[in-house]
């Protein structure tokens, strides 16, 4: 690894100043950045560690919702009972990243800004309607999570900008979410396909809102609004699921690579979407934790 100046400022202002340098990279858990730098795929001129900044660490209530510091290790999400109860799909996605050891470092902010199309937590966050707080030289802005990735390894962040927090809304009454992915191995693997689903059911079991997002089937994690729309107003009957699957099939653009063929990804997207919706619905009905 070529030497990169490393700094760990304890306030956001200083971090923004350091991150503004050309070629600087923000470091949260480092589970992608350090690996890619060692492998020679990245050569940052500086690494700016966010972990000493209070806002970047920890999970805080915000009304009935949550603020999650961008550098908070994924392990901490699983330890937060209120978060687990409110957004089990987001937590299960974060709990699938890497391995136990990786999750003790890896963060939602890093997973988002690394901008891998296969990032596990991103479809779950998108389905949940999460937002990202972007800090930069010009101040802060809050954007939907799906607005951050721009393509494999690329984000919409302007030079000098970084994600400092992620925000999750309150779990709506009758709401439930889920994330499922397929990997050949149980751990230490990259999703062949990942699907996040969040939906709301009324007292009669009718779906009043639904968001479906997929990973590893497009250049970025993909919110398929038409898939959610296909479920709204239905009781998730076979026909509604078929319509959702048609919408997904129309929206995704998987590729062939050494991990899987496009044809397999397309097929698995449907299988996992069906299962994720069923799981989210079971949670919405209170049948499953």
């Amino acid at each position: 690894m070529p030497p990169s100046p490393y700094s760990a400022p304890d306030n956001l202002g200083e971090a923004l100043g350091l991150a503004a340098a050309p070629g600087a990279r923000v470091l949260a858990g480092g589970t992608d950045l350090l690996i890619q730098t060692r492998a020679g795929r990245l050569a940052p001129t500086a690494m700016v560690d966010l972990k000493r900044i209070d806002r970047a660490m920890g999970i805080r209530p915000a009304g009935q919702g949550f603020v999650i510091g961008a550098a908070t290790p994924c392990t901490a999400l699983r330890d937060d009972a209120a978060l687990v109860a409110a957004w089990p799909g987001v937590v299960e996605a974060a709990s699938l990243i890497g391995s136990v050891q990786v999750r003790n470092r890896a963060s939602l902010g890093g997973n988002l800004c690394n901008a891998s199309p296969a990032a596990d937590s991103v479809p779950a966050l998108i389905a949940a309607g999460a937002t990202a707080v972007v800090a930069g030289p010009g101040g802060e802005r809050e954007v939907p999570v799906e607005a951050i990735p721009a393509g494999p390894g690329r984000t919409t962040l302007a030079p000098g900008e970084l994600v400092i927090e992620l925000r999750l809304p309150p779990r709506p009454p009758g709401g439930g979410d889920a994330y499922l992915r397929l990997t050949p191995r149980t751990e230490m693997d990259i999703a062949v396909v990942g699907v996040g689903a969040a939906l709301v059911l009324d007292g009669s079991g009718r779906c009043t809102a639904a968001r479906i997002a997929l990973g590893a089937v497009a250049p970025t994690a993909l919110l398929v609004e038409a898939a959610g729309a296909a479920l709204v107003g239905t009781k998730l009957e076979e026909g509604a699921i078929a319509a959702m699957l048609a919408a997904i099939d129309a929206a995704i653009s998987p590729i062939d690579d050494q991990r899987a063929s496009a044809a397999y990804r397309r097929r698995i997207a449907g299988v996992l979407a069906t299962r994720a919706v069923a799981r989210a619905a079971a949670r919405a009905r209170g049948e499953q934790a």
């Binding site: 050949p184 191995r185 149980t186 751990e187 230490m188 990259i190 050494q258 991990r259």
Partner: peptide
Amino acid sequence: GFLDYRVPVASD
């Protein structure tokens, strides 16, 4: 690399 050359991990 061991990410994409998939030897079994313990949980497999």
